[in-house]
């Protein structure tokens, strides 16, 4: 019988929900000074991480996070069957080069800042599909590598707008297994690319909010669950501007976002840290998940979590050619069993 684990149009429900057996997070100095500094495994002292370029530092962050997550289960990179990873840089170099050094079978992903959810849901399908027993899902971003690739040279005197977001320096890795103890991935919704014709390169929140709304709506619709089913619905990096828009869009769809809705981009920094709208980047949702959010799940403060990681599929080349900024969002339901 074809596709018996699919429900509705875009959602998969896992028969044997894969287990998040261990995870790790590494963040940059600024994220360490934020409100959740104590919940990350490792806070870097500087942006170079002992390397001679920022790109190499980002690669090392990803590599070390994967090793750290595995070592918590007394595992080595060789013990996992597949590494699913992606990042923001052209040709996903941070992930490719981290995989080169880790020597693991590797599938490179690109979902911009939605990568953590893309990796988790792909991994969960591989495991529940019976193709492997243990995978690692990982992603990372680095403030300076993203700045120089997507915006301006870091020493150029430019003025941020109130909707500008600060790319998080951070990496998160999750070991996902068929057997084990921990929270489980029960279902996932694969997002559509939604483009509402936004073209402001300093405002990713507005470009991504419609995709988040589309995926959340699809998730609740496909599973036919009440809108207060989850203890927390958390989006990836809409930040203040995008979060305000998403709340309006959800109300329009008849879903009540408050009080159990939040956004990693809003949570990760304090207002006083000069980040304008909030945080962004692959590392934003990944670190918040692999730091404070999963910690709260282990403590039982959150039992049902819906992570909706959002990505702005922006390309400077396409933007110069007059293209608008499409958005995508994938939802992963993580529940304590």
């Amino acid at each position: 019988m074809p596709a018996k684990k699919k429900k509705g149009i875009q959602t998969v429900v896992f028969e044997n929900p894969p287990v998040l057996t261990s995870w790790a997070s590494i963040v940059g100095p600024k994220e360490g000074e934020g409100p959740w500094g104590g919940d990350f495994d490792w806070i870097l002292e500087d942006y170079m991480f002992g390397e001679d370029t920022w790109e190499k530092a980002e690669n090392k962050m990803l590599r070390e996070t994967v090793k750290l997550a595995l070592s918590k289960n007394n595992l080595e990179p060789d013990d996992a069957e597949i590494l699913l990873a992606g990042d923001l840089l052209n040709q996903v170099i941070s992930s490719n080069f981290a995989a080169r050094e880790l020597g693991m079978p590797f599938l490179g992903l690109y979902g911009a800042c939605s990568t953590v959810a893309e990796a988790l849901l792909t991994g969960a399908m591989l495991i529940d599909g019976g193709f492997c027993e243990r995978i690692v899902a990982a992603t990372c971003s680095h403030h300076h590598t993203a700045e120089r690739q997507f915006r301006f040279p870091t020493e150029q005197g430019t003025q941020p707008t109130p909707s500008t977001q600060w790319t998080v320096t951070g990496a998160g890795a999750i070991v996902l297994e068929f057997l084990g103890v921990g929270p489980r991935i029960t279902s996932a919704t694969i997002g559509r690319v939604i483009d509402m014709k936004q073209n402001d390169m300093t405002d990713m929140g507005s470009a991504m909010a419609p995709a988040a709304a589309d995926t959340i709506k699809a998730h609740f619709h496909d599973l036919d669950i009440p809108s207060d089913y989850y203890d927390l619905v958390v989006t990836g990096d809409l930040a203040k501007v995008g979060m305000a828009i998403l709340e309006r869009l959800l109300v329009r769809e008849g879903l009540t976002p408050k009080p159990n809705y939040s956004d990693c981009g809003v949570l990760i920094f304090d207002e006083s840290q000069g980040v304008n709208s909030g945080g962004s980047g692959c590392g934003c949702a990944a670190c918040m998940l692999c730091g404070p959010l999963l910690k709260k799940m282990v403590k039982g403060e959150i039992n049902k979590l819906l992570l909706v990681a959002t990505g702005a599929l922006m390309s400077p080349t396409a933007s110069y050619q007059g293209e608008t900024i499409p958005g995508i969002a994938h939802a992963v339901a993580i529940e304590n069993y």
């Binding site: 109130p162 909707s163 509402m196 014709k197 936004q198 405002d203 419609p210 501007v241 828009i245 309006r248």
Partner: peptide, 18 residues
């Protein structure tokens, strides 16, 4: 039309530069 409506909403909610 949908995109135009959305843009109106964005312009309403997006904070203006000081």
């Amino acid at each position: 039309v949908e995109a135009e409506e959305y843009d109106t909403l964005v312009q309403q909610l997006k904070p203006k530069p000081a």
